[in-house]
Design a protein around this nucleic acid. Structure first.
Lengths: 137, 137
DNA sequence: CGGCATCCCAAAGGATACTG
DNA sequence: CAGTATCCTTTGGGATGCCG
């Protein structure tokens, strides 16, 4: 998404925003970043907590995604030198702002979810596609 | 990013928006969708026009992305039976709405682009990363 | 508990030759 | 012009074992 939509698209001539939009999307792309961001947005969370809260994520991807988000300054990581170790992740101010920006997208998706579903179904019927199980959610 | 961040993340308990957000992002994920959407947003464009307007895209990816966007009802495709053939792509109303929703994201990215760059640099210096050429744009 | 390291697979994406 | 078909490389991501 985003999934890893990095790299170029340099100048779209007079479409300068594109680069910026891409920059934005590149930080929240990937299968898990958003789920994690939303989770830490309503309070700090520990590693294992997140592992449970984000169903289906693997240990590896949780670690990788957390590291990337930390690198971009979207989450902070606090280690408590106790035994057993305890690590807390929390959203930075920047991430909280982002969270509210995602709302526009959410609402757009809500408004059009049915129209999109219909469009897909129509398209698939028109072209010879079998009954695709669209159940993303 | 979004690149292909499909599938699950079913219920994040009381974080219902997540699924919807994902739905939204899944339609604009991939390396090229946004560049194309932005391009057709300010008027209809032909295949070869887009190929030039979106620098770096391959014929294959242009076709694939256009088909997906058409399937989701974000762009319309009109074929003129002339020789040589002429095909026009244009943004649907839904896509125009989306375009304005992306603005929130754009502005967020603009506000924080420097902070993010600094954060990355700091992170990379702290951990032993070499001088990464961050030039996405 | 938190998380790196390793192995492996599937999907995304690039290059390019061919065609109606 | 506007694609399709084919082949190959790269990246994302699942599974799992080990370790402080």
């Amino acid at each position: 998404m985003f999934q890893g939509n990095t790299r170029v698209i340099q100048d779209l001539a007079d479409e300068r925003p594109s680069c910026t939009v891409l920059e934005a999307l590149n930080r929240i792309s990937g299968k898990w970043a958003i789920g994690i961001l939303l989770n830490v947005s309503h309070g700090p969370a520990r590693f294992t907590e997140l592992e449970r809260a984000v169903p289906g994520i693997s240990r590896r991807m949780l670690t990788l995604t957390l590291r990337n988000l930390e690198r971009d300054g979207l989450i902070s990581r606090t280690v408590y030198a106790t035994v057993p170790p305890k690590v807390e992740y929390r959203a930075t101010d920047m991430a909280v702002e982002l969270h509210s920006s995602l709302t526009a997208l959410t609402q757009w998706a809500e408004r059009h979810r049915e129209m999109i579903a219909d469009s897909r179904e129509a398209y698939d019927r028109k072209h010879g596609k079998p009954a695709g199980v669209d159940n993303d959610c």
